[in-house]
Simulated scan of single mutants.
Amino acid sequence: MPGGARGGWLVALLLLLVAGAGSAQAQNGLPLDSVPRGRFRQPTVRVGEIVEYELSSRHAPRQEVIFPDSAADFAPFEYVGRRYTPTRTRQGRSLDQATYRLRTFRLDSVLTLTLPVTVLRGRDTLLVPTAPASIRLVRTAPATPISGPPVLRQSLALRPVPARFNYPYWLAGLAGGLLLAGGLVLAFRSRLRQRYRRYRLRKNHVYFLAQYARHVERFTLSRSLTNMERAITLWKNYLSTLEHTNITSLTTREIVARYQHDADVRLALQLADRVIYGNLFTEDDTETDLAFVLLRNFAERQYAEVNA
C-alpha cells in the first residue's frame, strides 16, 4: 500500500477512536455512567398483575437528581405505588434507587416503558430519559381463530326477576302519613291534651287510693302512729299535686280554712291530731278509722271536681 494511502487510513481510524471515546464520555451532557437506567424485575407479566420496575441513577454527590412521582406518565402502565432506597455514596459516586409498582391492562405482546429523570444544574433542569425497558405479556385466555361473529341463539322465555323494595313510594307514603298525623294533632290538639290530662289524673288517683289503702291496712294491723302519719302525709301530697298547691307545710287550722271549713276535713284532721299529738289513743278506738274514711272521701270529691 502506498505511504500516502496508509497515512490516510491511520488518520481516519484515529478520528473514529476519538469520536467513540467522546460518545462514551457523555450522553445529554452527562457521563455515560451517570445516565439513569430502568429495568423490570421479571421478564413477563399478566393483565392486571403487579409488576416492579427498578430505576437507578449514579451521579456526583453534589448533583441533584429527581425521580418521577405518581403524576408522571407511566403509559402503557398504571401507577400503583413506589418505595425509595436511601442514597448511598461510595468512592466519590452516589447511587439513587427507586422501585415502582405498576400494572397494565393493555393486550400488546411486548410492553415498553421509559421514564425521564430530572437533573438540576443551577437554575436549569435537564430531562434525561432512560433506555426503553421491555416486558412480555403472558396471555391466559386461549387463542381462538377469528371466523366471524358467534351465532346467537334466540330465547323469548321470561326470566324470573326478584322484587326490589320501592323506596320512593314508601318514603312518599311515610311523608304523607306524617303530614296527616300532624294535621290531626293540630286539629284536635285541645281534645288530645284534655284526654291526656284526664288520663294522668286517673292514673295518679288510682295510685293514691292503692297506697292510701296500704297505709290504712298497716295501721289497722299494727296500730302504729307512724303508719297514720304516713297516710295523712300521702293525703296532703296527693291534694297538693291534684290542685297544684302546697298544703304539706300548712297546719290543721290553715288546711281547714283552705277548704272553707269543710266538716269532713275538720273532723278527720282533729281526730288525727288528737291521736298523734295528744297521744289520746286506745286499742279499740274507732275514731281513727272514721278519720281515714273521711279523708279518702274528701280526696275522691276533689278528684271528681278537678276531673270535671
Score class of each variant (00 low, 15 high):
W9R: 15
L17I: 14
V18R: 06
A21T: 00
P31E: 09
P43V: 06
V45F: 03
E54T: 03
E64M: 08
D69H: 08
S70M: 09
A72P: 05
E78C: 05
D96T: 06
Q97M: 12
T99C: 10
Y100R: 00
Y100K: 00
L102D: 03
R106H: 10
L107D: 10
S109G: 09
V110G: 01
T112A: 11
T114M: 12
P116R: 07
V117G: 02
L120R: 11
R121D: 09
G122H: 03
L127P: 07
P132L: 05
S134Y: 09
R136M: 07
V138D: 13
A141M: 14
A141W: 15
P142D: 13
A157H: 14
P160F: 08
P162C: 05
A187M: 14
L192Y: 13
Q194C: 07
R195Y: 10
R200S: 04
H205F: 11
Y207C: 06
Y212P: 00
Y212V: 00
R218Y: 12
R223M: 02
R223W: 02
T226C: 10
N227F: 15
M228F: 13
R230W: 14
T233M: 15
W235S: 01
L239E: 00
S240M: 01
S240P: 03
N246Q: 15
T248W: 03
E254T: 08
E254S: 08
V256W: 04
A257N: 05
D273M: 05
R274Q: 13
R274W: 12
L280A: 15
T282A: 11
T288R: 09
T288N: 13
A291N: 05
A299N: 06
Q302D: 08
Y303P: 00
N307F: 10
